[in-house]
Design a protein around this nucleic acid. Structure first.
Lengths: 241, 241
DNA sequence: TATCTTAGTGTCCTTGTGACACAAAGTAGA
DNA sequence: TCTACTTTGTGTCACAAGGACACTAAGATA
């Protein structure tokens, strides 16, 4: 069936001669967590076609940067924080997805602690929105958010991502709540603690919560060094069906 | 930190006015399996910079097709088979990855039964190469192949992908060998059978191998209908570390 | 000092999985 | 047709992991 690959090469060269307009962008699904809610960072879209809808933070990739660099640039531009945890998820390339022309967009998800970035300020009404309060979104951004959430759910079972969404010092109950919210299931308190503590990845800070009107909980932090040492299949969870 | 998003919108519009040359391509890592070897489909690269090296099958995405459509087109062009199993894996966008200009490429993996497509014919010496015999490749295609293999390894533990790489009728030993080769580990014959048969996803065909000079093995086929019915966390394997 | 609220803990039973060895079936060659 | 050869196909036991489950402990408040 192959008829000739020289034809293919020609088409590549032609592409650059004829200046077909194609663009690459990066869109980021930035997750935050607070008050037993998973949130994502959104803007008001100001393109005519999608007026009134929310969009993800994103921009065109510049000529001399990699995709990861573009994502980091976008993240630090909107949050002011450098080096956020992020991961590429999937590219979206439906021909009509952007009204201005052919734009293929690479979706990333990123994790921010809401303690570090509680009240977004910026143009276009930058804000945290509870994931479940997202209605329709501009472009195919809703699909992107869903893909990214699915990826987050699968990664958080294996990698210690949850800790990027919590304050440095946290209680076991906070950690459990986070997992319950992200994975949309209920976990048994005793089994959860047994599992987590058996990994020897949590540092007991010998401190307790303050300003709570009941027995204060112990505070822990995550031991990244220990994790890096033996990251052999350090699967954090096994989840019941 | 955000200085103004209107600036961002402007840059998008500008992009399409100034006709910056950017291209999108799709590259496919086509996996095949035979004789206890995992193979991939490669071409001789005929671009000057990479003369003598192997490359993946791939091409520019056309103006009116989605990424998935481009991947299907490429796959059927080179193999002559429609509707191969494939999945998007990752996009590669290093600015200098292609000598002709800025090309962001979306990598897909695909699975073909070597029985359906045993002897490739086509330009550029299209051929199956054992995965471990791949040396350096053109562009960043080696990285793509590695990413795709990693994804295949992780998916094959959960989804019934292996069956796309085998003939319709297969023996349990063939299936076990395939898993051993892809995952690079040894499995216990009895435990493997216990696990697979307990899923009720294999149809006992009441046939046996022929033309072997020893006790012939029973033949099975995979029950896709049954699988679809209860695809609830139908994880096929749990793998020892 | 009594009440309220959340933290923190241990056991039992079931299930899943790894380790392990030998008889059965068919072929090929003497 | 008998023997040797090769690969198939099978069962048990011991251990580890995980799910279900209820009460006491600690501190705050009125």
């Amino acid at each position: 069936m192959p008829e000739g690959q020289s034809r293919i090469i020609t088409s590549w060269e032609q592409h650059f001669k004829t200046n077909v307009s194609t663009a690459i962008s990066v869109d980021c699904v930035v997750f935050g967590y607070d008050q037993k809610e998973l949130k994502i960072l959104v803007l008001d879209c100001d393109i005519d076609e999608f007026m009134g809808k929310k969009s993800l933070v994103g921009e065109l990739v510049k000529p001399n940067e990699t995709l990861d660099e573009a994502a980091q640039r976008i993240l630090s531009y909107w949050t002011g924080i450098e080096g956020l945890y992020m991961e590429q998820v999937k590219s979206f390339g439906s021909p009509k997805r952007h009204p201005l022309g052919r734009v293929v967009s690479v979706a990333y998800y990123a994790l921010v602690s809401l303690q570090k970035f509680p009240e977004p300020k910026g143009r276009n009404n930058l804000q945290w929105l509870p994931y479940h309060a997202l209605g329709d979104m501009a472009f195919d951004h809703k699909q992107m958010a869903e893909s990214c959430l699915q990826t987050l759910r699968s990664r958080i079972k294996e990698k210690p991502l949850g800790f990027s969404l919590l304050p440095k010092k946290f209680t076991l109950q906070q950690l459990q709540n986070l997992y319950e919210v992200v994975l949309e299931l209920e976990l048994d308190k005793r089994n959860f603690r047994r599992k987590l503590l058996s990994k020897d990845l949590l540092i007991d800070l010998n401190e307790t919560e303050s300003s709570v009107s009941h027995r204060p909980a112990k505070l822990y932090s995550f031991d990244y060094d220990q994790y890096k040492l033996n990251r052999r299949q350090n699967s954090l969870f096994s989840i019941k069906i």
